[in-house]
Structure formats: structure tokens, C-alpha cells
Amino acid sequence: MTAKTVHKNLGLSEMSWRSSLGVTKTVLIARFKIVLRYKGAIVFDMILPVILAALPILLGVAIAGQAAAQNFEDATGTENYKLYMLIGASTFIVVTLMLWLVGYWIRREMETGTLESVYASPAKRVEVLSGVTLYALIRSLMAFAFAMVVGSFIFQVDLFQGEMALALAFVVIGIIPLWGISFAFGALILKVKEADSLIQVMQWVVAFFMGIFFPITVFPPFLRYVALSFPPTWMTNGVRASLLDVAYFFGTWYLDLAVLLAFAAVLPLVGYTVFLRTERRIKKNEGVGQF
């Protein structure tokens, strides 16, 4: 196949690994600039888990009084219900941020009208996506860490107990399948008109199933299997089990971590495939920029 037109130049574009990195870096920085200009957005990320955790804690004490800790231990294996709730709420913010920042990404760029501009540029998807992903990762880990620290201060709980490193491993590995889920979810969002409503509901459905306030053993068997098929459930329980006396689903940390690793190996591939297919579908049908 020979070109049927003249070739002049590529303007100012210089394709190199440095400019590829530049795309990722620029996207990352721009995202942070944008969010920092929404007053309070970042602070809200960090405060929300503390408020979320506070409610069941207050509720538990109000209901069970002195017996709260003892009963909680009977039900979950740990009497440290404060840290239990704090972990649940902090993991939840990681999940919800990933859903919003990664899953909603295409949709949001469509709504602001910037997706066309991004897609008309020669930057590769992977480079742009890396920027977006890094941004989501940093923001959600920041929120997680901050919420845990502030929460431990407010609720007077000691974070430094159990296996800290293992807990961190559960968080970091748990985020990887989330990335994949977010993309698959992002594809779904594109099909729905009222996308933000859907994502609002989804985050609470997720919160419900991952057991941010309670052990999923309270579910009837069917709901329990639904919950177990969802990686954040393993992530939350993993963190809890490594810090507190909560049982691992499979009894030992390495089996639970292995399940999470399996999710981490498979789901990003699935997610990215779904993403590429979605992208192609958009370009075939209505075209980038329409929604």
C-alpha cells in the first residue's frame, strides 16, 4: 500500500519515550490541578470515611451499651469494633474513588466535551489512561491513609497492631482488580443515560456487599457468594484479618492473598479488553464526543 498523498511533516510532534512519559505526567498533574480547584473535594475524600465509620460505632454503643465490644467479638472475632469500622469505611473510599475516577473517566470527558480533543491527539490510550489511573491511585491511597490516621486519632484506636505490612499488601493488591472492574463498569456507564445516578447507586451496592460495617457472614448463603465474588470484599477482610483477630475467608493469609492476586491477574485484562471494545464501539457508532 503506497501513500496517495504528499507527506509534509508532523508539526511539532516528536514521538519518543520521553514525550510518552510526558503525556502521563501531564494528565496526572492536570487532574490534580482540576480537583484542587474544586474547594473541599480532597478534604471530603478524607473526612467521609471517618464520618461513615462514626455512625455505626455510635449506633453500636447506643444499642448494646457495655456489651458492645463483647457481642462484637462474638460476631466478628475482634472486640476492636472501632478499627473494624474504620478499615471498612477507608477501604470503601478507595473503591468508590476508583469507580468514579477510572470508571467514570470516559463519560466525564464526554460530558465536558474534552474526549474528542483527547482522542484527536496522537497520544496513545495507554499513556493517557496511565495518567488517569495514577491519579486515581494516588488520590485513593492518600484518602485511605489519611482517613485511617485521622480516624485512629478521633476514635482513639491504635493502628500499629497486627501485621501492618500484610495489611498494606492487601490494600495495594486489592486496588489492581478494582482498576479492571472500574473499566468494565465504565463501559456499562456509557450505555446508560443517567450515568451519575447509576454510579451513585453502585457505590452503595458495593459498600453493602463488601461489608464495610459488618461481617458478610450475616448474609444468607446466596448473598454471601455474591459478596465473595467481589474483590473488595477480600480486600477489606484481608486488611481486617491482618490487623485484627478477624478470620481470613480461607483460614490463612496466603490463601486469601492468592485469591486477591488471581483477581488482580485476570480482571485488569478483562477490564482493558472491555475498554478497547467500548472505545471501538463508540467510534463505530455515534462517534467520540457524543453521548
Binding site: 448494646a64 443515560k193 447507586v201
Partner: peptide
Amino acid sequence: RYPLSFGAIFLQIFLMVLMFMFAVFAFSS
């Protein structure tokens, strides 16, 4: 025609209440 928008607010709150309720389960023997 927009069941989601309407249902969304509702479902969110409902799920939240359910979560609290299950949390209370954990506090009661």
C-alpha cells in the same frame, strides 16, 4: 422515564439504612 435518577437517591439511602441495620446485627448477640 427516568427511573434511575429517582431510584438512585432512594436506593442509596435505603442501602445505607440496611448497612446500619446489619452493623447492629454484629453488635447484638
